[in-house]
Design a protein around this nucleic acid. Structure first.
Lengths: 204, 204, 204, 204
DNA sequence: CATGAATGAGAATTCATTCAT
DNA sequence: TATGAATGAATTCTCATTCAT
């Protein structure tokens, strides 16, 4: 009998892949990359370690993809805001609010994102992803400057600064302390104001 | 005659310690904490691994001290500026200029500084040091607000944002790319402007 | 079809565990705990060092189990005698005979048993196991005293003394010298007599 | 000037030797052989590690001598009792009383004595010393048998049993628990009775 | 004679990755 | 296809012993 890959198998494959990614994401969120060992991922995904290597050539690449997915989802949301209606200032305001809120909801993923996962390969990816984040803000900035809303500025630097500003401001609360909703609101507001003033928009 | 520790010996002692710290710093700067294994440090410092443990109780504590030294030196300089003469805006301007320049001169220590060093003990120290950095800026901010120079704001968040902004903005260039002096000047200026506007001071 | 662990696999698993225990037992018997390093155990068991850690969380726990197994088997046999028929004196007689004989047959485990295994964790277990041994004799003593066979006495001390007496008397011959069967018979008889007189039973 | 060894130096030498032995004894008594590292011994003796090797060729030999000294002192006392006046039973009674009491006073040395100090060389000595202990009791036993005080018996085995009995009975209280004087009296009495009955003397 | 800095061989443990079944 | 047992290189830390000063 000739072996043929059935659609069902494809699906199973996709399912497996997703389960691996989900499990990894979960473990990273709970304890950082450090806790997401292949054996743990496999156990949580309900499969063998060998299975993991059917879908990912190495742990590093799995991590890169997990990071990429997490970032990708956020980027998607931000991009929608960035390309949506409203003044540049309004869109920046909305984007910042959105990001901070989401980061605080799933704190450790944001933490892993700021973090060096020891593996150089993953680290490279991490920087690349941070840049992607910056690009969204950069787009808003360029738009705002063109429309005369924001003063002229080094948009690359400003974008990086924005990303840095809120990741740093989030590391504190993310680490040991867990904040209540009220504090989170305040923190989001503070970061937002800081960045808006920084780019020269209304300081709220 | 009582045996006395000669100055020469003291120096030798200090030299060893310094050589260990220097070697570690070098390795961390080149390849992150990951590359600074005890064996590598010992080799670079020209001594046996056992020697390391004469001066440092564990790898973690060595790392913490390396981090602390790096940060301590910077903090000292910043604090002098922060407590010096001039308006809050001027001092903030000076502090930012100074920090960015120094970070660009001695590359990659800033990088290690942003990084999670895998070891929880070191990580704790890293966060503590970041906070210390923030405190310098916070002091300037408080002063500026009191004097009516800056608008009222969440000084904790602003300080964290400032630290985050410039570390992030520096990671890019520090990582793979090496810039020429002109680019560095421009980057310093961009970051400075961003932060000054952010706190509500004159954007220069 | 659900994947099920086959009996063969179970056996393989058990085999490994047993091979590790066997190898450890052998090495301990030959050269004490000192010789039973993980690498040596792995080599003798015909597997990698990592494998050991699949079955035992640490060297200490492996040692504790080896000790426990050795003691457990002996205790089981002694307990059967202790709870069996016959007068207290007869049972004590039988128990002592049995123990001495077995100790002489499988040399040096008794030796390791007397020994402080350097590791505090193992040492704790060792003391616990010695106590367990004593408890078997204590039970016989209590029974004998109740029945008026033995004079009243500090049963805890007597039990400890019995255990100590025969372990010590065995260390000499077990250590360097190997005795012939005749000598062994005589030694067993001597120890037995000593203990029986000590508890106040007929000296045979 | 020709260098000559002065009496003073000899004394100093002797003093040093004693200080090393004293320091080692102290450390062993406090934390077992495990705590008596050369560096610790040197520090406590107020000299350099190198100095230790002027008086002892190796750590093992130092330990052997410490053990020997401790045992030697006890043996001396016991021998005096053994060779003193009184019936064999009385002398055995006195010897046991004396030994148990002394062991309980300086608990950890007794513990180290029972213990395997990992080093094979030391271990060999330990067994030798235990035998020496036994010899003292053996002498009393032989005497008692000759005089018709004790029944005929395997004096080697009995002597070993006596040593084993009280060391084992002492390990319990020595380990974690520290007993009050009353308990010690009782324990001494129990061990004594056990041994006296065992050799066939008056069971008290 | 005295020092104590320096050595370096070990020993335990971890975990990504492979591959026989 | 799926498993998970097995591997073993890699890494930290310890401490008896030596030897230049």
């Amino acid at each position: 009998m000739v072996y043929r890959r059935s659609p069902l198998m494809e699906e199973r494959l996709a399912n497996n892949r997703d389960r691996i990614l989900l499990a990894t994401r979960k473990l990273v969120a709970e304890g950082g990359f450090r806790e997401a060992q292949i054996a743990a991922v496999a156990a949580l995904a309900g499969m063998s370690t060998g299975m993991i290597y059917r879908y990912f050539p190495s742990k590093a690449e799995l991590f890169v993809e997990v990071l990429g997915d997490a970032v990708g989802a956020e980027i998607e949301i931000l991009r929608e805001i960035a390309e949506g209606p409203g003044s540049a200032g309004e869109r920046l305001h909305a984007a910042l609010t959105c990001f901070v809120r989401r980061a605080l909801r799933g704190p450790n993923l944001a933490y892993a994102f700021i973090t060096e996962p020891v593996d150089p390969e993953v680290d490279t990816a991490r920087i690349r992803y941070r840049k992607k984040f910056g690009d969204v803000f950069k787009a808003i900035l360029i738009d705002g400057i063109e429309k005369g809303e924001f003063p002229d500025q080094d948009v690359d630097a400003s974008a990086a600064c924005i990303v840095g500003a809120f990741t740093e401001a989030l590391v504190g609360p993310i680490g040991p302390t867990t904040r209540n909703t009220h504090d989170q609101q305040r923190l989001a507001e503070s970061i937002r104001s800081f960045c808006l003033r920084a780019v020269g928009g209304a300081s709220s």
